[in-house]
Design a protein around this nucleic acid. Structure first.
Lengths: 355, 355
DNA sequence: ATGAAAAAGTGAACCGTTTCAGCGCCATTG
DNA sequence: CAATGGCGCTGAAACGGTTCACTTTTTCAT
């Protein structure tokens, strides 16, 4: 079963390749009768013109960028993609999205696919597992393929647009401490994620700058999956006495926070009266929830937008540009899932914004 | 600024194109010193090998399909995409996603992009505005490009995987009527969507098969956007007397239902005690909400899976396959956002499943 | 030093389209 | 009736890589 080419069609139809090409491209220099005949032959042979061959001639003029995210179903990522799309559109670029599902192999495949298809550049939320396999990124560098990472990857110098996770969590935890909370716990994310580490660090930092003392039991490994978070919350609380419950839980992300809140309802615990909950990311659904979530907002649109901006700059540059690293600010948004136990001076610090 | 080609690199480096090609592809028949030199020249010239040219030779062996959805941020669509991805992966295909944002122009561009990039086939959630512009679909047919639609488009014969919206809504409304509700209202979706029409029809059908009589005031145009739905709900209720409130609202989709519930809370109305709410789609967040949503479940994964299956079948077929149309069943899921006012015989019908 | 084998590099053919100058033919015009 | 022009079509060049049979260079054992 060999590939059917335009030459096969031409031969079978008794016309030249040029004429067949004209038909495919809807040129009006073909008389209707010829056109119909050629169309019929195309159908008979099930001829599928190879798109790439067309783009060989001409300057391959389509403008397109790709974005590789970790999860198609987590609004945090789709919002970033949307931000990127908006900016890209304004510059005349199409955007395609693919999910690696945090699978390093898939990420590699997709980055190959993008470059092989002459997608002009890529925004990548990288998944580095253990001993970072990053050859695919090196390959992209070798072929001068423009890309922007959404997370630092050590060992490679590349454009990055990210947020300061450590600082973000620290701000939130400091706020809780200033609000009189003493029994604070952090529900950590997936063990292999760099975000998880950074957030744990942020948590510790807040303590080190307070009168309170950090203890490793304050970090509970929970993960980011909804069902898992839900059941681990149940486990965690039911394994200890009521008076040992934390008064505040700082969650890895908003989805986890929603799971935690659902579990608390199950146990007839009220948020925030019994336990304060703080999320992370500020996904769309965080504010829809009846107890709107206090959370750390990552500027998702801005992240996507900025990444797209840097990417397109690089795509359009004639010569290699210096690598850029942009860290965007997060914003701590106090809504209704957290409460102040007792006011202290510190709470009047400037940058606690309200929403 | 002409495109830098492999020949330019070869010339500048004083080697042949073949050797440069070998370097790019990591062949080990190049001595390290040469390799380094060529890499340096590639960097100097900012040489970006054109991916498509590589794929010309060889059978363009990568397997990939694309999916065009209407909204990257609505979980209904991303779940479909995920279902498609799962099946496609099992067959060795990569999947890329793009959002048309319900913009017909963008949909057209993307379908062009996919075929131009030799993405092997596409799943498309079509947006037809007014006088259906569907030439791009005809073009795909002309070039025998395999695709599957997620909605019927009149005027074109193509593979379709869809659900029966009319039947789905009818089932839900019949249930409400059987539960003793008489003041039922439908909050309809975006005016130009075929889903909107089908759902309105379903609503009417349910009435025509009941003792109750349909009146056009029962259909309220609300849309699917969250903020809009929220404010229109407020408007709707505040413009009438309390005793004229409906006892049940059948929503266009789950996101709208969430918006409606938020608005009801604002007005101190309880769900389901004061008003029953029924959603549509069964998105992920519908069951996370503290008042789990009674809704009509569209089998999102199955839709994606089935579409991918048909698509890949067509991609791999040597000859054109007959067009298929698959209608998947919905499931009415009774959770806590709706209540029974008064039991009647009809309620014991078989296919009301519980969750 | 020598010859054979291994390594490194060459270059022309090839992939499947598009493009476009030009050709033959027919209809129109003066 | 010759000249003109437009239509429909042809065919070869071009696009930018890869491939591989072959040549040149290097290595190494004798």
């Amino acid at each position: 079963m060999k590939k059917v080419t335009i030459a096969d069609v031409a031969k079978r139809a008794n016309y030249s390749k040029g004429t067949v090409s004209a038909v495919i491209n809807g040129k009006n220099s073909v008389k209707p009768q010829t056109r119909d005949h050629i169309l019929k032959v195309m159908k008979e042979l099930n001829f599928r013109p190879k798109g790439v061959a067309r783009n060989l001639r001409g300057t391959g003029q389509d403008k397109s960028i790709g974005i590789i995210i970790k999860d198609l179903n987590y609004p945090f990522y789709t919002s970033i993609a949307t931000g990127a799309r908006e900016y890209a559109s304004s510059k005349g670029y199409s955007v395609i999205v693919a999910s690696s599902d945090s699978d390093h192999e898939r990420e590699k495949e997709l980055s190959h696919l993008f470059s092989a298809k002459d997608i002009k550049g890529a925004i990548i939320a990288p998944t580095v597992e253990g001993r970072a396999e990053i050859e695919h990124l090196f390959r992209l560098k070798m072929i001068n393929y423009p890309f922007v990472l959404l997370e630092d990857v050590k060992g490679i110098q590349a454009n990055v647009v990210a947020i300061d996770n450590l600082k973000a969590i620290k701000k939130a935890v400091s706020y809780l401490i200033a609000s009189g909370h003493t029994k604070i716990v952090h529900f950590a994310g997936p063990p292999n994620s760099s975000h998880t580490q950074e957030r744990i660090e942020g948590f510790r930092h807040a303590f080190s700058e307070s009168p309170l003392v950090f203890h490793k039991d304050m970090i509970v490994s929970v993960g980011s999956n909804y069902d898992e978070s839900y059941s681990k919350t149940l486990d965690y609380l039911s394994s200890r006495r009521r008076e040992d419950y934390p008064t505040a839980i700082v969650c890895f992300n908003d989805l986890q926070a929603l799971a935690v809140m659902t579990a608390l309802r199950e146990l007839n615990l009220r948020v925030p009266q019994d336990i304060s909950i703080i999320g992370n990311d500020d996904i769309y659904y965080a504010k829809i929830y009846p107890v709107p979530l206090t959370t750390i907002r990552a500027p998702q649109h801005e992240i996507g937008r900025k990444a797209a901006e840097i990417l397109i700059e690089n795509i359009e540059a004639a010569t290699a540009l210096p690598v850029r690293r942009v860290v965007l600010d997060t914003e701590f948004i106090i809504r209704e899932s957290s409460r102040v136990l007792q006011t202290s001076a510190i709470i009047h610090e400037p940058d606690f914004s309200l929403s």
